[in-house]
C-alpha cells in the first residue's frame, strides 16, 4: 500500500516536473531571455594585494591612518560610520590624546540635549562616542542626496561580494559609459543624477566619483603619493578594518588553534592506534 502510494506520488511529482521542464525548455528555445545590460557590462572587481590578505595578513597601521584621513575629509560628508567609536581608533595606533583631538575636530557633532530647554542640540564628540553621522536621520540624508540615502559604511567591506576589492574597484571604476552601451541598451545609460560605473551592480549609481584627482587629500610625510588608486586602496583598507576590527586577533588565535589541534590530532591518532593495537594487529 505504501509502495503503491509512493509510486503514484513519485510519478506525479517527477512527471509534472518533467512536463514543466519540457515546457520551460521549449519556451527557452522559442523565446530566449533578452540579454541585459548588467549581464554584458558588469565587471567583477580585480583583486588588490592588501596587507591583511592571507591567513597571516595584518593591517598596515599607516595605511589605516591614511584611510581614516580620507574617510574624514571625503566620505564623512555624506556617509555615516555608526558602529565605530572614536575609542576604537586606538587600534590604528593613535594615543588617547590624539583620539580626543580627532573626536573634537570631527566634521560632525554628536546629538545631545540642551540642558536648559530640552531641545535637540549637538555637542563635541568624546572618545566614547560613536562616529557622529552627517545627517540627523534618513529623511535628511535622502533629501540632501537626490532621494538616494548614502549607506552606512561600517560594514560595507563585509556587506558586498568582493569586500575591500569591490570598494577599491568601485572608487576607481568611474568612467564615461561605453559607446556600445548607448547603442545596445540606451535605457541603461546613466541619468541626470546617476553615474556610470561597471563595478556597480546595476551599472549606474547615485554617488558621483568621490576621489577624482591625484593629491585630492594631502598625506603626511613619508606616505606614498596620494594618487586616486592609492587613496582608494587606503580607504578600502580602512573600511575593511571598520568592518572587521578583530581580524588580527582572529588570525592569531586561529594560528594557535590550528597548531594546537594538529598536535592533538597526532596524539589522537596515536592513542587510537594504541587502543586498537590488539584488535587490528593484522590491519
Amino acid at each position: 500500500m505504501i509502495r503503491i502510494g509512493a509510486f503514484l506520488v513519485g510519478l506525479f511529482f517527477s512527471g509534472w516536473l518533467l512536463v514543466s521542464a519540457t515546457m520551460g525548455a521549449f519556451n527557452f528555445v522559442t523565446n530566449p531571455a533578452a540579454p541585459t545590460a548588467e549581464h554584458e557590462f558588469h565587471k567583477k572587481p580585480e583583486p588588490v594585494d592588501f596587507s591583511f590578505n592571507g591567513p597571516a595578513g595584518k593591517y598596515d597601521r599607516a595605511q589605516l591612518q591614511r584611510g581614516l584621513q580620507i574617510f574624514k575629509e571625503v566620505c564623512s560628508a555624506c556617509h555615516s560610520l555608526k558602529y565605530v567609536s572614536f575609542r576604537d581608533f586606538k587600534d590604528l595606533g593613535y594615543s588617547d590624546g590624539q583620539i580626543k583631538t580627532i573626536a573634537q575636530t570631527w566634521p560632525a557633532e554628536a546629538p545631545s540635549i540642551n540642558p536648559e530647554t530640552g531641545e535637540a542640540a549637538t555637542r563635541k564628540p568624546t572618545p566614547a562616542d560613536k562616529i557622529p553621522a552627517p545627517y540627523p536621520n534618513e529623511v535628511a540624508a535622502r533629501a540632501a542626496n537626490n532621494n538616494a540615502a548614502p549607506p552606512d559604511l561600517s560594514l560595507m567591506a563585509k556587506a558586498r561580494h568582493g569586500g575591500p576589492d569591490y570598494i577599491h574597484a568601485l572608487l576607481t571604476g568611474y568612467q564615461a559609459p561605453p559607446a556600445e552601451l548607448k547603442k545596445k541598451f540606451p535605457e541603461a545609460m546613466p541619468g541626470k543624477t546617476t553615474h556610470y560605473n561597471p563595478y556597480f551592480a546595476n551599472l549606474n549609481l547615485a554617488m558621483p566619483a568621490p576621489l577624482t584627482t591625484d593629491g585630492q587629500v594631502t598625506y603626511g610625510e613619508g606616505a606614498p603619493k596620494p594618487t586616486v588608486d592609492q587613496m582608494a586602496k587606503d580607504v578600502s583598507a580602512f573600511l575593511m578594518w571598520t568592518a572587521e576590527p578583530k581580524l588580527e586577533n582572529r588570525k592569531r588565535a586561529g594560528t594557535a588553534a590550528v597548531i594546537f589541534l594538529l598536535v592533538f590530532f597526532g596524539l589522537c591518532v596515536g592513542a587510537y592506534k594504541n587502543v586498537w593495537a590488539d584488535k587490528k594487529a593484522h590491519a
Partner: peptide
C-alpha cells in the same frame, strides 16, 4: 584468545604498558 587478551589489556591501564602514555597525553591535551 585475542579478544580475551585485549580485555585484560584494557583493565591494566594503570601504566603497565608504556605506550599508554599516548592515551594520557591525548586526554590531557583535550
Amino acid at each position: 584468545s585475542l579478544t580475551e587478551d585485549s580485555a585484560t589489556a584494557g583493565e591494566e591501564q594503570g601504566g603497565v604498558r608504556r605506550r599508554d602514555f599516548i592515551n594520557v597525553a591525548a586526554a590531557s591535551f583535550a
